[in-house]
Write a protein that binds this DNA or RNA. Structure first.
Lengths: 349, 349
DNA sequence: TTGTATGCGTTATCAC
DNA sequence: GTGATAACGCATACAA
C-alpha cells in the first residue's frame, strides 16, 4: 500500500536540496552541478518519484502540451481516407518537437460526458474539414481564447487556414480532359454536407454545400465544363465510388468521370470495368489526392497529388508558431497534376 | 487588449457570490438557486468567462479526463486497418460518458520533444498491440502508477488485458478447411515483429515472434495442420496480401490460404485471380476480422468476425472501472466463424 | 443554499 | 548554482 505519491517536495527533502533545484533537475532549464543532479536522481529512484506531476506543471506553466484535433465524424470515417491519416502523421510530427501530443476530439454534441471541447486542457485546436456543424466548435474554442487552425474548411474571418488550391487543381484536371477532347464529363463528388446523402446535385443543393472541398473542386470543374453534372457520394471510400459510378453510368455514359478523391476514382474504375467498359479507352477517370489506394494494384490514377502529410505538418507548424506568440500566415498548398494511365482520348461514339 | 483572463474569483466577485458558488454553477455538483445561477451565468457572459480553467481543475481534482492511447507505429499504419479504427471508435464511445477524450501517443522513442508518455497528463493508458518495443512504454506508465489496459498484447503479470480468442478462432477456420477436405494449406501471416519483413517463417523466426496476434493465430492453424508453412506479410493491407500471396503461389499451389486478416485475405483473392485461379474452386481463402473490406465488392470472405468496436469498448469500460477504483477482470472476446463464399472443397489435382 | 479557508504540486522570480 | 517565496486557478470540507 502506497501512503501517498511522493511530490517534488518530498524528493527535495530526501535529496537534501530545495524543491526549486529538484525541479530544475527535471526540467533542465538551468544549470545544475553534476553532483546534486545525481543525488536528486538517486533519491528519486529510491522514493519512486517518476517526475513532476503533469497536471501541476501545466497549471503552473499555463501550458498542457496538448493540441486538440477536432473531427466532425466518427473516427472510422475520418481515418478511412489515407489522406486524413497522412495528415495526422504530419501533424503529429510537427508538434512533437514542441513536446505536444494530439487529443482526439469528436465534434458530435450530445455526448453524455458533456462537451469535452470546452473542458479539455488543450493549448491549441486544429479543426479538420470545418463544415457547418463545426462552427459551434470553432466558437467554443475562440471564446476560450485558444489558438485555432482550420484545415480545409471555411473558417471565417481571422481564423488561420491551411488549405489546398482545390479549385485551381481540379481545373487543371478538367483542362487535361478537355485537351484530350472530352466534352461529356460527370463529376463524382464528395458529400455535400454532413448528411452525406448520395445523389445528383441540383442548383439548390449546390448552393447549400457546406463542405468546402466539395464546393471548390466542383467549381474547378465548372470553370472548364460549365454544364457538367455532379453526383455526390456518401463518403470518400471505394465502395461509395462504385455505388455512385454505377448510378452515373446507368443514366448515361459520359466519356470521363472526374472524381473528387482517389478512393472514389478507384471505385469508378471498378464500376466501369464491371460494366465491361475499359479504362481509359471507353471511360477516362481522374482522381484527387495522389494517395496510394490500397488494392488498386498496378493502375496509376491520373490525379492531383496533394502532399497530405505536408498539410498536417503545415498545420502543426502554424500551431507551434501561434503558441510561440507569433502570427503565422495562412498556407495554401499546391497540388501537382500527375498523369496516370486512367485518362485518354474520348471514345468515338 | 485583454488585461488578463478572468478567473472564477473575478466572476464570483462580479456576480456578487462566492467562488465556491460560482464553481458549483459550472460543475453542477450541488444545487443552486435558479436566481443565483442565472446571475452567475450573466456575469460570465459579460466578463467573457468561458468556464473553469481545465488545467487548474485537473490539478485540484487529480484527474485530467484524458486517456492515452499508445501505438507503436506511425498513425497511418495503425489506422490503415479498419479493425483499429473501429476499436478506436469503441474506445472513444466507452470513455466519453466519463467525459474523457483520447490522447494519441506514439511509442517511438527518440522523439525530439522527449518522451511525451512520461509527461502527458493522462489518467490512464491503453496500449494497443503491446509488442516488444512497447515494453518500455508499459514500464513508464506503470512506474507512474497509472492504470493500464493492454489490447491484444502480451502484457505480463498484473496488467489488464483485453484480448481475443485468437488461437481458438483460427483453429475453427482451420477445422472448417480440414472438414472440407483440405490438407495443403499455407498461412498468410501478419508481421512477426516490429521490423515487418516479408518472407517465409522459419522455426527460429517463429520462436522469436513478438506480436501476439501473429503467434496465436499461427498456433491455431498448427493445431489442425501441424506442418503448414507460413509467409509473413509486411502489414495488414491489401497490397501486402497481394504481394505475399504471389510469393506463396509462385512456390507451390496449396488448396487453401489462411490469412491472418481480412485485408490480407482480400489481397490473396486478388493475387489468385491474377494468376487465373478461381476462388474458391481452385483456391480457398479465409480471413480474420470480419470487417468490411473497402473495394472487395460483393465477395463475402469466410472469416472470423471479431467485434472490433466492442473490443475498444471493453477497453474503455475497463479504464473507466479502474478510474472508479474498481478492479475489472480481463476480457477475452470470442470471434464468430462466418462462412462466406471464398472457401469450398479443395480442387482435385 | 451559500460562504470561508485551504491546499492540490509545481515552477518563475528573485535573491544569495 | 542554489534556496526561499509566491503564485497558478480551482474544488472541496466544513461552517453558517
Amino acid at each position: 500500500m502506497t501512503p501517498r505519491k511522493p511530490t517534488i517536495t518530498d524528493l527535495a527533502r530526501a535529496a537534501g536540496v530545495s524543491p526549486s533545484t529538484a525541479s530544475i533537475v527535471f526540467s533542465g532549464k538551468a544549470p545544475v552541478t553534476e553532483a546534486t543532479r545525481s543525488r536528486v536522481l538517486a533519491a528519486a529512484e529510491k522514493l519512486g518519484y517518476t517526475g513532476p506531476d503533469p497536471r501541476a506543471a501545466s497549471l503552473r506553466r499555463g501550458r498542457s502540451g496538448i493540441v486538440g484535433v477536432v473531427f466532425d465524424e466518427p473516427l472510422r470515417g475520418a481515418f478511412a481516407d489515407p489522406v486524413q491519416t497522412l495528415m495526422m502523421d504530419g501533424l503529429a510530427d510537427a508538434v512533437a518537437p514542441e513536446g505536444a501530443a494530439l487529443l482526439l476530439l469528436r465534434d458530435g454534441v450530445g455526448a453524455p460526458g458533456g462537451p469535452t471541447l470546452t473542458t479539455a486542457p488543450i493549448d491549441a485546436a486544429v479543426l479538420v474539414g470545418c463544415s457547418g456543424s463545426m462552427r459551434a466548435s470553432l466558437e467554443v474554442v475562440q471564446a476560450r481564447g485558444i489558438p485555432v487552425v482550420v484545415i480545409e474548411g471555411d473558417a471565417g474571418e481571422g481564423v488561420l487556414r491551411i488549405g489546398l488550391d482545390n479549385r485551381a487543381a481540379q481545373r487543371r484536371a478538367a483542362e487535361h480532359l478537355r485537351d484530350l477532347g472530352h466534352t461529356d464529363v460527370v463529376m463524382l463528388a464528395l458529400p455535400q454536407d454532413a448528411r452525406r446523402e448520395a445523389g445528383w446535385t441540383t442548383p439548390e443543393s449546390e448552393a447549400a454545400i457546406t463542405i468546402d472541398v466539395t464546393r471548390d473542386r466542383l467549381a474547378g470543374l465548372r470553370d472548364v465544363f460549365p454544364s457538367a453534372r455532379a453526383y455526390a457520394a456518401t463518403g470518400s471510400f471505394i465502395d461509395a465510388g462504385v455505388e455512385a459510378a454505377r448510378q452515373i453510368l446507368a443514366a448515361h455514359r459520359p466519356t470521363a468521370i472526374v472524381a473528387q478523391s482517389d478512393l472514389l476514382a478507384a471505385g469508378a474504375v471498378r464500376a466501369a470495368e464491371e460494366l465491361g467498359m475499359r479504362v481509359p479507352e471507353d471511360l477516362s477517370v481522374t482522381g484527387f489526392d495522389g494517395v496510394v489506394v490500397d488494392g488498386l494494384g498496378e493502375r496509376r490514377l491520373t490525379t492531383l497529388e496533394q502532399l497530405a502529410a505536408q498539410k498536417g505538418r503545415a498545420a502543426g507548424d502554424a500551431v507551434a508558431a501561434m503558441l510561440a506568440g507569433r502570427d503565422p500566415a495562412p498556407v495554401e498548398l499546391t497540388c501537382r497534376f500527375r498523369r496516370g494511365d486512367t485518362t485518354g482520348p474520348p471514345r468515338a461514339d
